[in-house]
Design a protein around this nucleic acid. Structure first.
Lengths: 328, 328
DNA sequence: GGGAATTATGATATCGATTGCAATTCTAGT
DNA sequence: ACTAGAATTGCAATCGATATCATAATTCCC
């Protein structure tokens, strides 16, 4: 059922039907009524692709996430979708994986769909390959990065200040009398590297000359469990462990309990993200709240501003706080 | 940069450029090479909307979720997106909320975008308003429901057999010597009502004449915590609690611990979904594994079959199993 | 070398909308 | 009743691709 079919049955031209659909003035009341009845009768729905072609507006926003399952990213996608739908946009969403080349490929897909804006969620987009792809394909589409930044004219970044956040975690440990902290990292994303840098910086300033203990593992419960066992085995003097994400901290907590190590008396645990995992965990995790929700909200609103022709801040830093619970 | 711009600069017609883009035969090698160079030079990307208009194929799949944040739904969306992108589709995703009328509205949006298929994730879509909207707008688009079913010719349902699943949970409790089970429900979705029915049926058959204890709460940690306190207060004889979702069970576990009730000696706890929450929780939750991942995979594959013109099973039942951990 | 068969290319219609401008109808004022 | 001006309505171009069919250019074979 197209606009022409409706027009023919109503005995008018397509232009008139179009005017009715879009609520434009200049249609006689009776004509309008008759057309509206036909539209309802046939459940007419305009073809947005055809409409977009002539109006040069796809009304599509692209969302790229490296993995939609990771819990805090989901919150971001939720908020962004909710805000944009209100304005008549629809969101196409892609899981890009962590591979740089495939991320670039998804940028191209966004171009083919002629998105009017894009949101890249996660620090892993803060890489050369993505920068080049944006320059190549999406150089005049507003792009908001949630927890990332690239120095391009059409990119607006919102960043969690994770380096200082983690440094503050170390400070908290020292304030409470802990003396030998370790840090567990999983992926080498820009975000995680910033956390690591914060850890190193804080240890150097609070315990100059002290060895900096950084351990690596994969982002799974098994990974968190095993690396914790390893830390205890290799360095029994460690009395505080900071994990790059809550998931790992939750697994680490369990490992410590299974080794009959008391938390927080013998070893303190701090997670990052202040996600629901931190609250489900028993004991409840102390966690660095990097305000990811706030970050997503800001991303959504910045994109909306940009879509309305305003110029949002190029780069916003969002400060974190520590939510102390039962593991420190 | 359109196909005409490329054609003009190459000194050929748009048809020829189109042939090159789509790798169709009938273009001389040198011509092809020259055009490809120009395409690369100008980073040409075809306009998918224009292409879709003439080919009558949007290459868009619609995904409707009531709330993308709920963890197992995210897994479903992840798998479906990943499988469909491989085939050149892109997914538009909407959080519909729980309201029936707005769900119907989203069905209309899918029609406007001329989706070639749709996936409805969550049992809350199994309602009259959605059925009518599908009949009205999407009656010849294949629709797959993940954990739901509607009796329409173009709808393919995959359902978790939650009723029997929960009944088996009750049986497990009785087998282990527990005698007074309670059930905690949050939303009144078709899925939850099936769980409740399974609970009632099992209690009636295993302990005829016994009172059936069903408690309601909201789907939050606070909700799970408070309702558990209430159960213990009102019915200290309850020795096993089944929660409609793991999240509530995790909160309930903590409530029991805080009341110095030992798990599983005094009270057993069973969650549903066998999600990561069950493993993070300490003690680790025994949980009904309703194979949501399997369900999502099946949904994705059924949709792909339907897109390829095959006729998938109209209604598939997926059986559950119980993952026993530390709370029974 | 000439005509048939084959290959390469282009002209044009089409998909389903919107939109500027022209044409028609209506209303009102004298 | 006649005409200016306003209100309706329609024509035709356009958006950026694809696809059919006709035509032009090659190749092949005897």
């Amino acid at each position: 059922m197209t606009i022409y079919d409706i027009a023919k049955e109503a005995g008018v031209s397509a232009s008139t039907v179009s005017r009715v659909i879009n609520n434009k003035p200049g249609v006689r009341k009776e004509t309008k009524k008759k057309i509206q009845q036909l539209l309802a009768k046939y459940n007419y729905s305009p073809n947005e692709a055809a409409r977009g072609l002539v109006t040069q507006a796809s009304k599509i926003i692209g969302i790229l996430v490296d993995d939609i399952r990771t819990i805090h990213h989901t919150d971001g996608a939720y908020i962004i979708e909710r805000e944009l739908v209100k304005l008549g946009y629809c969101c196409i969403i892609f899981n890009t994986g962590t591979d740089e080349a495939s991320k670039a490929n998804y940028i191209n897909i966004l171009k083919r769909r002629r998105v009017e804006g894009a949101v890249l969620i996660g620090s892993s987009f803060q890489v050369k390959a993505v920068e080049q792809a944006i320059k190549k394909y999406l150089s005049d589409t507003p792009i908001v990065m949630a927890n990332g930044y690239l120095d391009l004219p059409n990119v607006y970044g919102i960043l969690a200040d994770e380096q200082n956040g983690v440094a503050n975690c170390v400070k908290l440990l020292f304030d409470k009398g802990y003396r030998r902290p370790a840090f567990v990292i999983d992926l080498h994303t820009p975000s995680n590297l910033a956390k690591k840098a914060g850890f190193e910086q804080a240890v150097q300033s609070l315990a100059p000359g002290e060895e900096i203990l950084v351990y690596e593992t994969e982002r799974t419960l098994q990974g968190g469990y095993k690396v914790t066992q390893k830390i205890v085995r290799e360095r029994p003097d460690v009395d505080g462990i900071i994990y790059a994400v809550d998931l790992l901290a939750a697994a680490g907590t369990r490992a410590l309990i299974d080794m009959a190590i008391s938390i927080p008396e013998q070893v303190a645990v701090i997670g990052i993200d202040n996600s629901i995992y931190a609250e489900i965990c028993n004991p409840k995790l102390t966690s660095l709240d990097n305000k990811l929700l706030n970050l997503s909200m800001t991303a959504a609103h910045n994109l909306i501003s940009a879509l309305n022709g305003k110029q949002p801040n190029k780069k916003i830093l969002i400060f974190s706080s520590i939510e102390e619970r039962e593991t420190t």
